[in-house]
């Protein structure tokens, strides 16, 4: 083990304890650890993005690209220079055009992605369950497949209906539609709760593995420090 490795292990151990000190309360040690962390992360991300995006997309085509590539690189280059003016509050106005450009593309990507990537595939998948001619992984017989399919359909529909925003004026006796909505609401809540519960358990499992890993690290580190001391 080289000195660099030993120093690294000590640093990792110290930083782990500093972060864990947050369990007692917010304190300077925790602050120091996360400020180091934020700085390091930002540095890494910055270099990787420069290496993987800016150099190949903006610099290399200008130096060694064909005429067509150079022309194509000029527009993002210009917009990029304008965007850089956002660094200075005085010049920031020049950066409005590239920001508007980004927002326009972002809005379009969001809509396109939501319609073609979420809404349609999810609708299709829900309908496809009722194709009883092909069996799916977990259903051993058609009857069970149908029952599960119906539960999924009911769950999807009531969850979606739960979010209905509009409501009529409040009345003492709710109309039929309002009672129906209220019923949907209750059933939808059950499905939402189960989904959140499952996801929560999943996040917790991930966090627990992280905790086990960190505590193992601490125990191992202390063992490797304490055992030689005790044996000597």
């Amino acid at each position: 083990m080289s000195n660099l490795d030993i120093f690294g292990a000590i640093l990792g151990f110290a930083l782990t304890l500093m972060v864990f000190s947050y369990l007692i309360g917010d304190n300077p040690l925790f602050r120091v650890a996360i400020h180091i962390f934020i700085g390091v992360t930002a540095g890494f991300v910055c270099i990787i993005v420069i290496n993987n995006v800016l150099l190949p997309r903006m610099i290399v085509p200008l130096i060694s690209g064909s005429m067509e590539e150079r022309l194509l690189a000029i527009i993002p280059m210009l917009l990029g220079w304008l965007l850089l003016t956002k660094i200075s509050p005085r010049l920031a106005t020049f950066g409005n055009i590239p920001v508007a450009f980004l927002v326009g593309v972002a809005a379009a990507v969001a809509i396109g992605g939501a319609v073609l990537g979420t809404l349609f595939p999810q609708i299709n998948a829900t309908i496809a369950i009722f194709d009883l001619t092909t069996s799916r992984g977990f259903d051993t017989n058609k009857g069970l497949q149908l029952v599960n399919g119906i539960i999924i359909l009911v769950g999807t529909v009531t969850t979606l209906a739960y979010f209905h925003f509009g409501t009529g004026p409040q009345q003492a006796n709710p109309t039929g539609l309002q009672s129906l909505l209220r019923g949907f609401n209750q059933v939808g809540q059950v499905f939402i709760a189960i989904t959140f519960g499952f996801l929560f358990a999943g996040v917790y499992s991930a966090a627990m593995v992280a905790l086990v890993e960190r505590l193992s690290f601490i125990v191992d580190f202390l063992k490797s420090v304490l055992l030689p001391l005790l044996s000597s």
Partner: peptide
């Protein structure tokens, strides 16, 4: 079973609702 049926149904309903929200928010910007 929970992963395959009720949790998946809830997730699907949530995703569809979120999809609608995304379309609305995107169109407002557009």
């Amino acid at each position: 079973w929970i992963a395959q049926v009720p949790a998946m149904a809830g997730a699907r309903g949530l995703l569809l609702g979120i999809g609608l929200g995304i379309v609305a928010a995107g169109l407002r910007v557009l």
